[in-house]
Amino acid sequence: MDLYQEIILEHSKRPVRAGLREPYEAQVHHVNPTCGDEITLRVHVKAGGAGEPELADISYDAAGCSISVASTSILAEELTGTSVAHARRAIASMRTMLTSKGDDPGDEDLIGDGVALAGVSKYPARVKCALLGWMALTDALHQTEGVRL
């Protein structure tokens, strides 16, 4: 099945940067009410180069299907250490790809291995699974706005 590429199965079995860590400025808890999947996600932001806020750490505790766990693992791998501005662009790109019904293969420059999830967009029932971690990150970044770095 095109949905379960090796890279997705690998991320789902050994999720990158999993576990909840200190320090953090925001913590969110998101659920997928149709299946009961849950994620707790923390972000640690600090001032990076040129004073731009940077995502110093993304840590999480996720229980869910292979698609949702792999997607969150890819998120943590691709966005840890990047600027918050880049992370927002990546989230937008991921969202566009996943809701494209198969038309958008994804922007590898922005979401890296996230393009492996492009096949999910052909299965509307699974889009929420793949977006769970990314929506949690959106929410967490929103909470860090105005935090003194």
């Binding site: 099945m1 949905l3 379960y4 299946c35 869910g64 299907c65 292979s66 698609i67 699974r126």
Partner: peptide, 10 residues
């Protein structure tokens, strides 16, 4: 070791 969503998908 396999989530129900993944079972259902297969």
């Amino acid at each position: 070791g396999v989530h129900a969503h993944d079972v259902g998908q297969v």
